[in-house]
């Protein structure tokens, strides 16, 4: 709320600074002053078996408890980065460190672009899946799953099968499942891309509310400028071929993000800044 020109200015400076720094492997200035990052990517590179260089030399620190968006054109390696952070895809070079948990990855939650539910299980059993895999007893895991379903507003649909739910409701189940283990870090890969705008806005608000109450670290992949600005404290813009960091923009926005913010001039200005950065990233 420091006014539009101020925040745009900061963003610009930040952007250039980061481009210059992206070749280094030294920790960025940010973590010497701010709180310790929950995860630190250093020179992260991924080359797929078919020779595609999906990501090259990516340095990124993610502050504990922050909401960070990864924004970039299609094919710039956003999903690849997320999958590497989740440990689902091996790195070709570089490293991913988890400084806070003595190097071991903390509990992670992952939300895919599709709801990715098991169609043969009811909503509550889908949500309880991670607990079941951990060996939590049935009564306890159902209690916790029910709690999560309440949180995402689906208490009445605990015993419905995924096919009996709408697209937005399925996505909520998917988010509930990701949160049921109370993860420290929630990774989301374009979770709302397939939804209509009304549903998307509502789920944006739900997600923010959850983040405010639970304070996990959120890494949110999106290709929507508007969504990234609305949700995050920081937008990381990536460029393609090879996938790399292009700009790192803090989003100075009110603590309370709601429909008023969505229609404010501040929001419009921030979107313009991020949009411009994205455009430059696509030309770069």
């Amino acid at each position: 709320m420091t006014g539009r020109p101020g925040s745009a200015e900061t963003a610009g400076v930040q952007e250039d600074g980061t481009i210059a720094a992206s070749g280094h492997t030294a920790p960025s200035r940010e973590d010497s002053t701010g709180p310790a990052p929950v995860v630190a990517l250093r020179g992260v590179t991924k080359r797929y078996g078919n020779g595609t260089l999906a990501v090259q030399g990516l340095d990124l620190d993610i502050t504990t408890g922050s909401f960070v968006s990864l924004l970039g054109p299609s094919g710039c390696g956003k999903s690849t980065v997320l999958r590497m952070v989740a440990g689902l895809s091996p790195l070709t070079a570089g490293g991913i460190a988890w400084p806070r948990a003595a190097g071991r990855p903390p509990k992670l939650g992952f939300v895919f672009q599709e709801p990715t539910l098991m169609p043969w299980k009811t909503a509550i059993d889908n949500v309880a899946l991670p607990l079941r895999l951990e060996g939590v007893a049935k009564a306890e895991r159902h209690r916790r799953a029910r709690e999560m379903l309440d949180l995402v507003g689906l208490s009445d649909f605990a015993n419905s099968y995924p096919r009996e739910l709408s697209g937005g409701m399925r996505m909520r189940v998917s988010i509930a499942r990701a949160l049921v283990t109370e993860p420290e870090v929630l990774l989301l890969d374009e979770p709302f891309a397939a939804l209509d705008e009304i549903t998307r806005f509502r789920l944006n608000n739900d997600l923010l509310r959850l983040w405010e109450s639970r304070r996990f670290t959120a890494v949110f992949v999106t290709h929507s400028v508007f969504e990234s600005v609305y949700l995050s404290q920081r937008v990381v813009v990536m460029a393609a071929n090879p996938g790399r960091l292009h700009a790192d923009l803090p989003i100075a926005a009110p603590a309370r993000r709601d429909e008023a913010f969505r229609t404010s001039p501040d929001y419009a200005a921030l979107c313009r800044t991020v949009s411009e950065a994205l455009e430059r990233a696509m030309k770069a």
């Binding site: 999958r83 989740a86 440990g87 689902l88 992670l108 992952f110 895919f112 599709e114 990715t116 098991m118 899946l129 991670p130 895999l133 951990e134 283990t181």
Partner: peptide, 17 residues
């Protein structure tokens, strides 16, 4: 489903699970 397999992997599911 690949994503479901990834999900199981993420939660450290055993082969049997």
């Amino acid at each position: 489903d690949r994503n479901l397999l990834d999900l199981f992997r993420l939660y450290g599911a055993t082969r049997w699970q």
